[in-house]
Simulated scan of single mutants.
Amino acid sequence: MLISSPFAADAVLAAPTVCDPARTASLLDFHGLVDELARVALDYDAGRIVSPERLVVPLGDGGVMLSMPAAAHDIGIHKLVNVQPANARLGLPTIHGIVTVCDSITGRPLCLLDGPEVTGRRTAAVSLLAIRVLRGRAPEDVLLIGTGIQARHHLKALRAVYPHCRIRVRGQDATASEAFCTATGSDLVSPCGRETPEAVDVVITLTTSTMPVYDEPARAGRLVIGVGAFKPEMAELGGTTLLGSDVYADDPAGARHEAGDLLRAGVDWNHVRSLATALRQPRDPARPAVFKSVGTAAWDLAAARVAMSALAAGR
């Protein structure tokens, strides 16, 4: 049986739309991203989206090329990201990348999106989805630990979806925290010292630390989200927090290989639940919870859907 493509047949020969970082960002509204990620999480868990483990290929001077495909009934995506730490001394970005979007039926390339922008915005949106599902209500007081690129994306996401939320920032030192907060120009964003205020109801760690940057006793009603550690040797969250909390992961299979925090703490993997499980089975938001974000190309596919819808609407 011939399956029709959702994309116009008269555009078969059209060149794919190429989006620079600014255009890519304009297509990825955070409200739409969170909603689409919720749908994709359920589809991915049910096997309706294929997202294999990423392929890592070495590049010169210590760099790596990361290949991450995903496919669904409507579109397929391939994110190709080059990570080159040596670029710092050249004054160049450490990460370069692109997301290619194609029609699943014909294979025709439809769009090229900026890889770092897709990754940053969809990762922040995954954190917002975790807040929506695991907390059950809007956060009032959030602590961001880290002042890098992901911290900036999370700040944008929080201000877009929860504009009245207070945001505290803990950087590597007081100078970094102050500079980050001053750049926002918002009275709702302020530096935070080493002690976490009791009022904080969500903590989001956004560093590449190899030692825990947050290891406080689990607190009822507080959600802790670990984002930055993406290798087995990295660990942002400590065992005190993890072993006293309900633990969720966006992709538990990937977390077994990449979530250094969980590996070091020796969590019981039989009790690490997926984001899809949280979507299907509401939990008691009063219980302390940890959400570990490791990422999967399925989330990039969700972002590509949002971008394609925005393009189709003429945005």
Rank of each mutant, 00 (worst) to 15 (best):
A14I: 04
P16F: 04
C19D: 00
P21S: 14
P21G: 13
A25P: 00
L27G: 00
L27V: 06
D29K: 01
V34C: 02
E36M: 12
R39G: 10
V40F: 00
D43T: 03
Y44K: 13
D45N: 11
D45K: 08
G47H: 13
R48W: 09
R48M: 10
S51A: 15
P52M: 11
E53W: 10
L55H: 07
L55V: 15
L55S: 11
P58Q: 12
P58Y: 13
L59H: 07
G62R: 02
G62P: 09
G63T: 11
G63S: 12
G63D: 09
V64F: 06
V64C: 10
M65L: 15
M65G: 06
S67H: 10
I75F: 10
G76T: 09
L80K: 12
V83D: 03
A88L: 13
A88P: 07
R89T: 15
L90T: 10
L90I: 09
T94E: 14
H96G: 12
G97D: 04
G97L: 02
V99K: 02
T100E: 08
V101T: 07
C102F: 05
D103W: 02
S104V: 02
S104W: 02
T106V: 11
R108M: 06
P109G: 07
C111H: 11
G115C: 06
G120Q: 01
R121G: 03
R122N: 00
T123C: 05
A124R: 02
V126Q: 04
S127T: 15
A130T: 06
T147R: 05
H154I: 00
H154W: 01
K156F: 06
V161E: 05
Y162L: 04
H164V: 13
H164G: 13
C165L: 10
R166M: 10
I167E: 05
R168G: 07
V169E: 01
A176K: 02
S177G: 07
F180R: 03
A183C: 06
T184R: 00
S186G: 06
D187Q: 15
V189C: 03
P191Q: 04
T196D: 11
T196Y: 08
E198I: 07
I204L: 15
I204T: 14
T205A: 12
L206T: 12
V213F: 03
Y214N: 04
A218Q: 08
R222D: 00
R222T: 04
R222C: 05
L223K: 08
A229R: 00
P232I: 01
P232R: 01
M234S: 11
L237V: 05
L242M: 13
S245T: 02
S245Q: 11
S245E: 09
V247Q: 05
A255V: 07
G260T: 09
G260Q: 08
L263S: 09
R264C: 03
R264H: 14
N270A: 15
H271L: 13
H271T: 14
V272D: 01
A276P: 10
L279W: 07
Q281A: 12
Q281W: 07
P288G: 12
S293P: 02
S293D: 06
V294C: 12
G295I: 04
A297F: 03
A298E: 08
W299K: 06
A302G: 11
A304S: 15
